[in-house]
Design a protein around this nucleic acid. Structure first.
Lengths: 351, 351
DNA sequence: CTGAAAGCGCTTACAG
DNA sequence: CTGAAAGCGCTTACAG
């Protein structure tokens, strides 16, 4: 394995200059930099991470703790995020060490990893309302970045989508089409994003379609089965007036709703409009649903590069309160949404 | 953070001696070792991994590549193994870096990780028949250990259970109870362990109960749904004579079989005996099934300590062909198996 | 049984 | 713009 020394000998430069050239220090001459870069490529130079880490005092390792849920439903989104996050961190010379935890104490696994004393920072996933992890890590001065947002005006680094707008955009599309009885199959209530979506949903509905009864909001694991079961119960009409549109937390949930409609002989979008939020998981193509699914669209994996970069910036001393990004999901109108059925543009009745 | 130097100053010893004492070198005097260990504990000494790694030339990082399947069914066993493996490797000062791959080429992701040139070795999971990964890694002299076994007389390190015996033990129990028409819901055919289980099943059946028609062997994802669907079709009797016993690849599959029996009004074990192989996943308690499930039993997570140790030994120069262990699963007889129903002890007919 | 010393491959003040 | 040198915290022949 070629070292800085090899390059320096090859070019008659000092190791220091070679190091500076490769690390993009501005004071290096353009010609020198080019020569160094070429020699590095020619010799197949790769920095020795352990040496870099020893010299800089960083471990180059960041951690992420995955909560295993009691119901054992391995989250499909998990793999997608891990894939991208690992790659994005690797591109920035950081290794990601995963640790799976099954305990009840949300900060205990972080304490445990910190004790081993070899982590530069954390990526926090699956925030819950009033998540205690940011407070704990900040009290110990441990850098981290959160995927999502657990508090209203956080003083920590995070990247997420505007979940209230996800609901509002969907509601606005549907109310413009005349819908008033819109139901929501939300993500699991214990997660912060779900709380934001529900709040956004209720606010947008109140503004455009009328108040929403509790019976028109439900949640469950983000599966086809959840969608099927809830839609079947709502659409059968046994539980009161039927919704004319259903908003789904994920595309698999929407697949279940579509199946329920089919089983009940309801046409989509003739009798029922269906929308979902689309995390753009691989192997799930809402464009190929039948009918093609109207969605709000925000690929989960696109969060990974910003998250990795924020963490690097944070490690390099950037103030975390500057490392905050909220992006707005896109809206893709396809064939699963249409005008409200005639005579059905009647708001929910609050009991 | 305390260093070796701190300890050496504290005790008036050399850094070298402190290092030797802490690393268990035999030549250190017993009293000296004790003093050093006490001082290390008192000062909260933790070795600096980067320094160790730089000095030893090892990265201290091993990789594991997780294949993401097209059907997106995140394997429940995955989390269990990752949890334990991470912990066991950490206890041996190794970090585990996961990489998720979705491509078709089984060795490409290993090549890619190798190019980054910072891995000491790999843990290989989910072996398939004639798995190309061992050959590739051996050709590059990359240490690895396989969870399971992909070849008949491997020349590489691996740890696994005797899958043929898993089937044979189950078949023997059932034939002793008089069963002759035993059906198998196997793990997915693309995995090596499933091929071993099927071969073991057919051999044991041929020896004790008669040959098995292809229609009595099926496979699918290791889910409740797989068990329910297959059992329903077999037990309805539409596809030929009913099995009097069903062997399941996993406990969730058995849960599905039990539900199918219930739905059809069949009693277990009166009309049907049910067995499964139990990976001992958390939150699944075959002892609490109704009836309590008879199983072959081999906790997946118990493979992790041996795997971690084997990898360490391999990294320390042990010849991989010595690092091979096959353990035998246990057999736990509970209430889901019983004597064959009267007059039903008639072998399968091969069409 | 213990120590002095070299070395692992980087980074980064300090000088010029 | 470049270099000489110290230092990061270990490990490990080599000597005694």
């Amino acid at each position: 394995m070629a070292t800085l020394k090899d390059i320096s000998v090859e070019l008659g430069l000092s190791v220091a200059t070679v190091s500076r050239a490769l690390n993009g220090f501005p004071e290096v001459g353009a010609r020198t930099r080019t020569r160094v870069q070429e020699a590095a490529a020619r010799l197949g130079y790769r920095p020795n991470r352990s040496a870099q880490r020893l010299a800089t005092g960083r471990s180059g390792v960041v951690g992420m703790i995955v909560k295993l849920r009691a119901d054992m439903s391995a989250d499909q989104t998990f793999f997608d995020v891990i894939t991208s996050l690992t790659a994005e961190l690797a591109a920035r010379d950081l290794d990601l060490v995963l640790s799976v935890d099954q305990g009840d104490d949300p900060v205990a696994p972080y304490k445990r990893m910190l004790e081993r004393d070899l982590l530069d920072g954390f990526v926090l996933n699956a925030p819950v309302p009033n998540d205690p992890r940011p407070g704990f890590l900040m009290s110990r001065d441990v850098p981290f970045v959160m995927h999502g947002q657990a508090h209203d005006a956080p003083d920590y680094a995070f990247f997420g989508i505007d979940n209230a707008a996800v609901s509002a955009d969907a509601v606005e599309l549907l109310t413009t089409l005349g819908h008033r009885r819109i139901a929501l199959i939300n993500g699991e209530a214990r997660f912060a994003f779900a709380a934001e979506r529900e709040a956004g949903f209720r606010a947008a509905m109140a503004a455009g379609a009328g108040a929403v009864p509790d019976s028109a909001v439900a949640d469950g694991p983000p599966t086809e089965n959840t969608g099927y079961t809830l839609a079947l119960s709502w659409l059968s009409g046994r539980t009161g007036p039927r919704p004319t549109a259903i908003l789904c937390a994920t595309t698999p949930v929407a697949a279940g709703v579509l199946r329920a409609a089919r089983d009940l002989g309801l046409s989509v979008p003739g009798d029922l409009s269906v929308m979902a939020h689309d995390d753009a998981l691989p192997n799930i193509r809402p464009a190929h649903f039948n009918p093609a699914l109207t969605v709000t669209h925000a690929p989960l994996r696109e969060a990974c590069a910003p998250l990795a970069q924020m963490l690097v910036d944070h490690l390099n001393g950037a103030p975390p309160a500057r490392l905050q990004t909220v992006i707005r999901a896109g809206l893709i109108v396809r064939a699963s949404t249409g005008p409200v059925p005639k005579g059905e543009d009647i708001p929910w009745q609050i009991p």
